[in-house]
Design a protein around this nucleic acid. Structure first.
Lengths: 369, 369
DNA sequence: TTTAAGGGCGTGTACGTACACGCAGAATTT
DNA sequence: AAATTCTGCGTGTACGTACACGCCCTTAAA
């Protein structure tokens, strides 16, 4: 009752004074005073550190609720000399495939922002062509006992093993890029591949005519992304089916060997009825070939704002690039750990990042995302 | 020299231990010790509160730089009982035009997040049809002497006056939505109307044929957005010109009176060659009419994710909505004030928000932006 | 010479929390 | 009955900063 009346009163007061009214935050001291105990006792109750009689405990908790006590994060971080350590585990960015530089940039940005709040971020890397390197570094991470982990679980089996060990150590972990099913992850920030393919369908649909042809290209050598790529393709096909596309859909699966003949293959396949081209990864490779052949009525949709891709977007070879905020995946992932561990906030579990549609006229907006 | 060596050492140490090495933050106390003075003196130097000899001042500053002293925000906020007060000044959201609810949501979100850091946000509103209400509330804002202001300067003259008075009181202010030229604003978060129109051109271009027709609709009653709307139209026209569009461009300026006859007008104007429709505001009104007439080969591009618009996007009447993150405008604006005033960080001046391309397949991603 | 007015500086307390310590009294063991 | 352990609690200090206060010493004014 009392609480309720109090809250109503505050709201009313706020209203009258146009939110000018200052609601002084209740501190642990206020709670102690009203409960007739010392600060230390309240602290013990709040942290469940025992050595408090049941009666007192109940009374203190009740008063905490009544007064709507909210711990002061600043003072908490200041008082506890504990530095929170977050480990990140992502593929080492390569020069020729700098995709993974972007999530890393987001991670570094978050690390910088949180450095003032007693948080340190340690970056661990693995080689995306080498599962053994994943296993190796997993051990290092566990040895250093971080308070939380953010990882891109490209190798699902190995990542699952790591997840289990983290669970055993009660270390929460966040996934970016993709999810390992059956794990007890804290939160996920990543892409919804099927939906992005479906969306690509919508875009290509603007351009298609009833009796035209669409080519879908899959690089089958891109094994670690295999599921993503397959789902993108499926999404596109589903859209065309849902919208009763009567033209032709050509699926090209390009293996490592076929890659050398890409220009030739394209040259043979393209004709005047080909109005759509959808490439589920490494669009720049296709763009390079296409540049030689020439491109006229074709609408070309690819993925990710890598420098190569953006170059071809600018030249008008690629028309649309889809991306799911790789930088934000890293940034938001770290912030989720912070909010959960440090600020003790609840975290939503699944975050499929917005699917960004990027054309030549707005790519600058995303150049640092 | 010393510093340099120290830094290198740290970097080296970090490298060796895989960033495990803990760099203890230097505090005011460390600086004091090394300078051979007391904490109080260092504090006076840092805050320019005088009563320090010139020699000491120089020495302390030098050592601050050498040791790379960074004040601890937590301790700062904790120690100073000062509550920072930010005022926001935006149009009161109406039921039939809830656009302004969105930036407000961003503001409220930021306010919530910062409430733990000794920041309070007061929301002031004006009636977007009534310049007098802007003037009135301006006075209230000034009376309450906030530490910083965020405003949407729909009435440029009145906003300019307010800006001048804020300057006189040394209160920094952030603009969202649009800029009042000639003012000394801290930062701007908003749209680039011309560029968004140009981008709309690109999208419609995917669909156009050489000899088709594009209709551009402007609601001239939307006075407070007049400049935005005009620039959007210009952007579209520029794109079509740059790409040698040979079809026809029809400009319809709909005043308050013509609005009643909208369905009729559209019915007369639309024919089988009309492939593009670009509406610079209030797309839902056009969509309502279009729904009655029926829509076939038409590509319809509008602005902003208002519930009305989204409804028509879902029905397939509107094909694309462009928006420039109204929620982020509010959120980022408040955070800019925080970073500038509380964390004393440098702020970038102009932030034209990313232009988001929203279709039926990704509108959920933006429903809370 | 005495008094006043400053300049230049150190000290102390406060902010809200965490946690070690220690002190009673009760409960248990010897 | 004495010694030990345990329970329940209060006290004190630390975290890094802000700021009021006051002390000493110089310089100027009376």
């Amino acid at each position: 009752m009392y609480v309720h009346a109090l809250k109503i009163y505050f709201i009313f007061a706020k209203y009258i004074y146009n939110t000018l009214f200052v609601m002084k935050k209740v501190s642990i001291k206020d709670v102690a005073k009203r409960a007739g105990v010392s600060i230390g006792t309240v602290d013990r109750v709040i942290h469940n550190r025992g050595r408090v009689s049941e009666d007192t405990q109940k009374k203190v908790l009740k008063i905490c609720r009544e007064m709507d006590y909210q711990p002061n994060v600043l003072a908490q971080r200041l008082a506890s000399d504990k530095t929170f350590v977050f480990a990140t585990f992502t593929p080492k960015p390569k020069r020729d495939n700098s995709y993974w530089q972007t999530p890393l940039n987001g991670i570094l940005k978050a690390a910088d922002e949180l450095s003032g709040y007693g948080v340190r971020v340690e970056n661990y890397f693995f080689d995306q062509d080498d599962e053994e390197s994943f296993r190796q570094e997993s051990l290092n991470i566990l040895l250093n006992k971080p308070d939380g982990v953010l990882m891109a679980p490209l190798f699902h089996r190995e990542a699952g093993d790591l997840a289990k060990k983290l669970d055993a150590n009660h270390i929460p972990y966040v996934f970016i890029d993709s999810i390992v099913e059956g794990t007890n992850y804290l939160s996920y920030f990543g892409q919804d591949s099927f939906r992005s393919g479906y969306l690509a369908g919508r875009l290509i649909w603007f351009h298609l005519k009833k009796k035209s042809e669409v080519i879908i290209i899959n690089f089958t050598s891109d094994l670690e992304n295999h599921l993503h790529l397959k789902n993108r393709e499926k999404g596109m096909q589903q859209f065309l089916e849902d919208h009763h596309f009567r033209g032709k859909i050509v699926n090209l699966n390009i293996g490592p060997r076929e890659e050398l003949l890409l220009t030739h293959t394209l040259y043979e396949r393209l004709h005047h009825k080909t109005l759509g081209l959808f490439v589920t990864s490494s669009a720049h490779k296709v763009a390079r070939s296409l540049q030689k052949i020439g491109k006229d009525q074709l609408m070309f949709i690819g993925y990710d704002l890598t420098p190569d891709n953006v170059g071809y977007l600018n030249k008008g070879i690629i028309d649309v690039l889809l991306c799911q905020k790789p930088m934000a995946q890293g940034y938001d992932g770290i912030l989720a750990l912070f909010n959960y561990l440090v600020r003790k906030r609840e975290i939503e579990k699944d975050h499929s990042m917005p699917i960004e549609i990027v054309v030549r006229e707005n790519f600058q907006d995303y150049s640092d995302l």
